[in-house]
Design a binder for these strands. Structure first.
Lengths: 213, 213
DNA sequence: CTGAGCTTGTGAATTGATTCACAAAGTAGT
DNA sequence: ACTACTTTGTGAATCAATTCACAAGCTCAG
């Protein structure tokens, strides 16, 4: 199968969110045009995106909402639970640990780690903050799939390497540094500073830059 | 001037972070190769990115670190303070409000708003949570540049429209919906669910998908 | 059953981003 | 001053993503 572009996967995620919404509102069938309108793209793009994975619609009618929802969940690998650990019990890490939206979407936060003795042992929401030194022992036992990295930039690379050593293969990195890890490790970056600076650039050079969306 | 790609602006932001770091460590000069290594890209890409904005290096030597830092800050519009308001005092909003990294980088959080009477009036870090209904009065007075939107999905579109009506032109949207706003408004989306689902896809289809970075 | 009206699925065309490759310009050692 | 070595800046070539455009398939009304 052909390599699927990152941008396509992102859009599938957006379509899925709207589809789930539509299904709970009783919508039976939905056109590429409607999906495009809600996803901020074009109908041709929607059809192309879906066509990489198969043929889901009926000509003249559109896509069956419930079936397409199930197919997208399947394609995205959301037909299972993902076990997530959070590394770094700072402001962002804490907020994420307490945010219930993830669990709802199948991402189950099973543990939080930190290096700071003052934080270790404290409890939120049934989760006790563990010592980061335990990660090498815990990961082979509890087999988390994804680590969310919310440690200071200086430590991000070293901590990431430890996680990989312990057996983690997927990392959601909040530190504003580019992690250098073996090729088989999947990394996604969330970089708030970058987003704000993107806004700063766009607002400063309004005529040059297109409207980011 | 030619339209600059979003991906280019993102990379400039990454280069800038590393350059600032280098300057504080006393580095005087830096090559496109070194910037590429740290930014997770290629030297040709670095040179191309910079070439859109001018000629900053010396052949045979590289780029003067301090000067390039200043130029990038200038290009990105970081030679000023940006006034930021946070809408939504939930888990994420609260964490962002208390996170000092933004202020350090020139993004000054001047207010937090919420609709929930139980939250209004509570105080963090010198910031009192204000009633969202006051936003129409405050914005024309205090002239914030950017609104960070951390309200539930269902409310995001309506709240965004109110913000635009009040005079906001830049929005950092954390709600997993595509906002539909006038073309002159700049929107950036941070969508954690999308990132996690991207990881889920990549981990599920390891052979098909490239390593996202 | 027929014709008008939608909407999908998809090659082809286009537009956009990245990589190549090299001349030009500099450094440093002798 | 000359040679060997670096590194930038940039057109040209390549690779990738999006948009176009239309045949084919389906619905529905009469």
């Amino acid at each position: 199968m052909k390599r699927i572009a990152d941008s396509t996967v992102r859009r599938l995620s957006v379509y899925l969110r709207f589809l789930e919404d539509s299904v709970t509102h009783g919508v039976r069938t939905i056109s590429s045009q409607e999906l495009a309108r809600r996803g901020g793209t074009t109908s041709a793009q929607v059809r192309k995106d879906l066509s990489f994975f198969g043929s889901f619609g009926k000509r003249g009618l559109g896509y069956p909402a419930a079936e397409l929802t199930a197919s997208l969940r399947d394609i995205l690998g959301l037909d299972r639970e993902w076990r997530v650990i959070i590394i770094g019990a700072g402001k962002i890490g804490t907020a994420l640990a307490q945010y219930h939206g993830f669990r709802q979407r199948g991402f189950d936060i099973i543990a939080v780690y930190d290096a700071d003795a003052r934080k270790i042992g404290s409890k939120w929401d049934g989760l006790v903050v563990r010592d980061i030194r335990e990660v090498e022992r815990d990961v082979p036992q509890e087999l988390p799939d994804i680590a969310v990295l919310t440690v200071p930039s200086e430590e991000a690379q070293a901590v990431a390497e430890r996680l990989v050593g312990a057996g983690i293969e997927g990392i959601l990195n909040f530190a504003p540094v580019q992690l250098k890890l073996p090729a088989h490790i999947t990394v996604r970056n969330v970089n708030m500073a970058m987003e704000l600076e993107g806004l700063s650039y766009a607002l400063t050079n309004r005529e040059r830059s297109g409207e980011a969306q």
